[in-house]
Computed example of a mutant assay.
Amino acid sequence: MASSYTRVLALMVIVEIISLTGGSHQVSAQCGGAIPALIGKCKSFVLIPGPQIPPSSECCAVIKTADVPCLCNFLTPIIEKIVSMEKVVFVARTCGLTVPPGMKCGSYTVPPARE
């Protein structure tokens, strides 16, 4: 579902936004308060360096409960330089979320799923 995908993508972005800007309290309050859990459970699965790694069950649990549409609004070019959007989509799909091709978050457009 688009909502689930947007939720996951936004959460990953917010995790990095908070790390860079120190605005965790404001963003977390605006987007349902899930930021600390996302930082703690999912950060290592979406940063640019390194290979795609299947996320932990703890990361998936956090992603499935986050307010992604809200978080997606905070995606900036700075965050896109730190977070691999390809990894975000991989993590979301691995966690069982529907990530529709063509969905946009920031400047990123989700490609079709690989068969």
Rank of each mutant, 00 (worst) to 15 (best):
residue 1 M to T: 09
residue 1 M to I: 09
residue 2 A to S: 07
residue 3 S to C: 09
residue 3 S to K: 12
residue 4 S to G: 01
residue 4 S to C: 01
residue 6 T to V: 02
residue 7 R to G: 12
residue 7 R to C: 10
residue 9 L to H: 01
residue 10 A to K: 06
residue 10 A to F: 01
residue 10 A to R: 00
residue 11 L to I: 03
residue 11 L to F: 03
residue 11 L to V: 06
residue 12 M to K: 05
residue 12 M to G: 10
residue 13 V to A: 09
residue 13 V to H: 01
residue 14 I to E: 10
residue 14 I to P: 01
residue 15 V to K: 01
residue 17 I to S: 03
residue 17 I to G: 03
residue 17 I to Q: 05
residue 17 I to A: 02
residue 18 I to T: 11
residue 19 S to K: 10
residue 19 S to A: 08
residue 19 S to D: 06
residue 19 S to V: 06
residue 21 T to G: 11
residue 21 T to F: 07
residue 21 T to M: 02
residue 22 G to V: 07
residue 22 G to N: 07
residue 23 G to D: 10
residue 26 Q to F: 05
residue 26 Q to I: 06
residue 29 A to F: 08
residue 29 A to L: 08
residue 30 Q to H: 05
residue 31 C to F: 01
residue 31 C to E: 06
residue 32 G to Y: 02
residue 33 G to M: 10
residue 33 G to C: 10
residue 34 A to Y: 11
residue 35 I to E: 12
residue 36 P to A: 09
residue 36 P to L: 08
residue 37 A to P: 05
residue 39 I to W: 02
residue 39 I to T: 11
residue 39 I to G: 13
residue 40 G to L: 07
residue 40 G to M: 06
residue 41 K to Y: 12
residue 42 C to W: 04
residue 44 S to T: 09
residue 44 S to W: 01
residue 44 S to Y: 05
residue 45 F to L: 06
residue 45 F to G: 08
residue 45 F to I: 04
residue 46 V to C: 08
residue 47 L to N: 05
residue 47 L to G: 11
residue 47 L to I: 14
residue 48 I to Q: 14
residue 49 P to A: 08
residue 51 P to F: 11
residue 52 Q to A: 15
residue 53 I to T: 09
residue 55 P to C: 13
residue 58 E to G: 14
residue 59 C to D: 12
residue 60 C to E: 07
residue 61 A to D: 11
residue 62 V to Y: 12
residue 62 V to N: 15
residue 63 I to D: 14
residue 64 K to R: 15
residue 66 A to F: 06
residue 67 D to M: 04
residue 67 D to A: 08
residue 68 V to R: 06
residue 69 P to V: 09
residue 71 L to V: 05
residue 71 L to H: 01
residue 72 C to P: 08
residue 72 C to W: 04
residue 73 N to W: 02
residue 73 N to M: 11
residue 74 F to E: 01
residue 74 F to W: 15
residue 75 L to P: 07
residue 78 I to C: 00
residue 78 I to L: 13
residue 79 I to W: 04
residue 79 I to N: 08
residue 80 E to N: 12
residue 81 K to T: 13
residue 83 V to E: 13
residue 84 S to T: 13
residue 89 V to I: 14
residue 90 F to C: 11
residue 90 F to K: 04
residue 90 F to S: 07
residue 91 V to N: 03
residue 93 R to M: 05
residue 93 R to I: 07
residue 94 T to S: 15
residue 95 C to P: 05
residue 96 G to L: 15
residue 96 G to I: 10
residue 97 L to W: 04
residue 98 T to Y: 15
residue 98 T to G: 15
residue 98 T to W: 14
residue 99 V to W: 03
residue 100 P to R: 11
residue 101 P to R: 12
residue 103 M to W: 04
residue 104 K to I: 08
residue 105 C to P: 00
residue 106 G to W: 03
residue 106 G to L: 02
residue 107 S to A: 00
residue 107 S to W: 00
residue 109 T to H: 10
residue 110 V to Y: 07
residue 110 V to C: 00
residue 110 V to S: 04
residue 111 P to G: 10
residue 111 P to Q: 13
residue 112 P to A: 01
residue 112 P to W: 03
residue 112 P to C: 00
residue 115 E to F: 01
residue 115 E to I: 05
